[in-house]
């Protein structure tokens, strides 16, 4: 059975869905970050697969930039997380309600 582009895309969407589940149900901010990493990676798979099957390097380029953004996000996000933890002693999402309308 030949593995085609669709296989990769379906895999990518399954991973994306898992990431979304994580994003929605996680309460701990750190674990929420994990879920966002999953989202980014699932997209990377799709990019790499498309790049391969269409013989075009643009997809891989995008994957690189996605990785760069993910790294920045982790750096800044963790910094903020530490600040928050110092201030409130917790990183529970439910305590973050200063934006309540």
């Amino acid at each position: 059975m030949e593995i085609g582009l669709n296989h990769y895309l379906i895999l990518s969407t399954i991973l994306f869905a898992i990431g979304l589940i994580g994003v929605m149900r996680r309460k701990n901010l750190l674990l929420l970050f994990f879920a966002t990493e999953i989202l980014l990676n699932s997209v990377n798979i799709a990019f790499a697969a498309i790049s391969h099957f269409y013989g075009d390097l643009t997809g891989q380029m995008f994957a690189f930039f996605v990785i760069a953004i993910a790294a920045s996000e982790v750096a800044v996000g963790l910094g903020l997380l530490i600040v928050w933890h110092k201030r409130h002693g917790t990183i529970d999402l439910d305590t973050m309600s200063t934006m309540r309308g």
Binding site: L20, V23, M24, R26, K27, L32, L93, D94, M96, S97, T98, M99, R100, G101
Partner: peptide, 14 residues
């Protein structure tokens, strides 16, 4: 919707 709860907001985002 504007509960200020990030988790709820994320759900709405999705």
């Amino acid at each position: 919707m504007q509960s200020g709860n990030l988790s709820t907001m994320l759900k709405w985002m999705v």
